[in-house]
Design a protein around this nucleic acid. Structure first.
Lengths: 349, 349
DNA sequence: TCGCGCACGGTAAACGATTTCTACGATCGG
DNA sequence: CCGATCGTAGAAATCGTTTACCGTGCGCGA
């Protein structure tokens, strides 16, 4: 009853305030507020709870984190939070992890190595308990090296790393085999009689693009079909890119089917084909990848590879929960499946 | 079992470690790391920087926040982060605010009052510097009262509140007049000759739904058209809801146009109409609201009201920056515009 | 020559929690 | 009847920073 400091704007309600009102020590208040195992008499507990209620006390998580060395936060890195793919994934993650009292920092790297690194450092500074790589890695040597150092540092301090994408960072992971899924779609097309299959690539600086590309080549090889560069074009994972790439392929190569390595590009391809007098799927079939919500409502309902985005997030959260609880866990593997709609049929005779 | 504290495989690198290595006091290290105005000799500074670099020192933001009472974080509440509307908005916010060193906590309330409150409390506990309501409020009395208490508490401690939606919470705001924008689309339809206009409502427990509804009624009144309940149905802001609502309206009322109060429902409506033998727009026109990325690639390219989602986020961030810098600011007002595509034409003769 | 201001650096008190250690009565087994 | 144990509560150290407050030593104007 002697402590007087500068008359701050408005007193923050701290343990001390509650302690004074309830006429107990801060230790006691802390014990009841944090459900400590240290016994507190029922009567005292009630007094404390009442005081806390009266003052609208909310324990300061920052202070708490400082001493417990657990912030109850998770940092998530995506490429673009406005992309429904990542939105779904983050949602799965959040829905599952929030029950454990964890909160999410989300950061969009915008596919920029600098920016991803900046966020990595920030998350480290904020002492997140876990780091989640929801976005594919970028193809850049300096960046890779730096990511490795940062993640190493982070883990050596007890942080945990979770990878939900084609990212090279070491750590626990929920795997989705992009190569296999891509190959499966090629098989599906070949099985239906297609021999000249166009392929629309994602941006070359994304690991996931390359993995899908590899899946495509391998499947072709396995099916004894040759890889024709004229049938391959880059579409930057965007609708516009898909339009351009589709027209390029169709004019250079006469494909009977075009396989876009994501749905956005597939939608662009369909629109471009339609606008240029091709019938889809009668003249040329189009397949996509992702199965985004609107794939079903594309100009022609899209046959595509379903990526279980929400589940990737959700499984990630479950993994996280178990790791944080100290259990031994194994990586999770999820697979895609082909969703048949109307954009793929047998090639014209 | 072993729920021990820091599994600290290695010492966390703190100011102290750096200080020891550079052979100075922690105060000095702090001063150079935080670019304090307190002078530090060039030679000393270099030694400190070197030591910090060598150890990979990253100042602990939590500790820093504790003493400065500024966490450099912002809490954002949305309904559903997988909804591109919120994705865009959050992106605008993030793109702009990150330069100032702020990080975002994002939380999806899932349109659940309890959940929104839970996040509000959590953000408070994490001492966010600002609270952003990116999602429309919910219509629930208890919840409103509680939000008011919490926000009041938050602000009395110096927190700032920003509203980017139809949310009643007091605070600075970026306004988008949903009533006016809805009315504008009605005018557009009436101007083209439509007299019997169907309307698909959003979920009734969302303030934004009611605002759009009001805009619809008012415009009808202004144009001397009567409000026919048979032409109005609820579509819960989803594709499926849009399908159902459209079929209900069309079978009960014989509209020449259907105005869905968001694009997702409009897309559902178009698909349902098409699948049931109606031609769009020849038999019935369909209008949407939002202008989401894929509106252009709907089965019939959608005529809709453009909501400048990204800009709402961006302007919000700019406002925030200025408020945090202590400037006096005024609310921002953004307006929608009608994007004409192919789903609306004059009614059949 | 004196005194003052300035550049520079250290000491220690916060910030708001958790947790270890200590204290002290009451109960209880031997 | 005494020491051990238990239930309960407070004191104080601690987490990693920032920052107010002091001390130096030095240059310089009067």
């Amino acid at each position: 009853m002697s402590n007087r400091r500068t008359p701050s704007a408005r007193e923050r309600v701290s343990l001390r305030a509650v302690a004074e009102l309830a006429d107990v020590s801060v230790a006691t208040v802390s014990r009841v507020m944090s459900h400590s195992s240290h016994p507190v008499a029922e009567e005292t507990r009630k007094r404390v709870l009442e005081a806390a209620e009266r003052l609208g006390f909310q324990p300061n998580q920052l202070a708490r984190a400082l001493v417990t060395a657990r912030s109850q936060t998770v940092g998530v890195i995506v490429h673009d939070i406005s992309d429904p793919y990542f939105g779904e994934l983050v949602k799965g993650l959040e829905d599952e992890i929030r029950a454990d009292g964890y909160r999410l920092f989300v950061a969009s790297s915008d596919r920029n190595p600098e920016r991803e690194l900046e966020y990595l450092r920030a998350f480290d500074a904020y002492q997140v308990d876990a780091l989640v790589f929801a976005a594919s890695a970028l193809e850049d040597a300096d960046y890779r090296r730096e990511v490795e150092t940062l993640v190493g540092r982070f883990e050596s301090r007890g942080g945990i790393t979770l990878v939900l994408s084609d990212h090279f960072a070491a750590g626990h992971r929920v795997q989705f085999d992009n190569r296999a899924a891509t190959a499966a779609m090629v098989d599906y097309l070949v099985d239906r009689g297609h021999r000249r299959i166009g392929f629309i690539l994602g941006p070359p600086d994304l690991t996931v693009s390359n993995h899908r590309h590899e899946g495509f080549r391998r499947a072709l090889e396995r099916r004894k079909l040759s890889y024709d560069p004229a049938l391959v074009a880059e579409g930057s994972f965007s609708i516009e890119g898909g339009k351009r790439a589709a027209m390029q392929i169709v004019s250079a190569g006469e494909p009977t089917a075009i396989f876009a390595s994501n749905d956005l590009m597939a939608i662009g391809a369909i629109r471009a084909l339609l606008d240029n007098g091709y019938r889809v799927p009668e003249d040329v079939s189009v397949a996509g990848f992702d199965d985004m919500l609107l794939a079903e409502y594309a100009p022609v309902p899209l046959t595509t590879v379903r990526v279980p985005t929400y589940d990737i997030g959700r499984e990630g959260a479950i993994l996280l929960r178990r790791i944080l609880a100290g259990e031994d866990v194994e990586d999770v593997r999820l697979v895609g499946e082909i969703v048949e709609r109307r954009s793929v049929v047998a090639p014209p005779a």
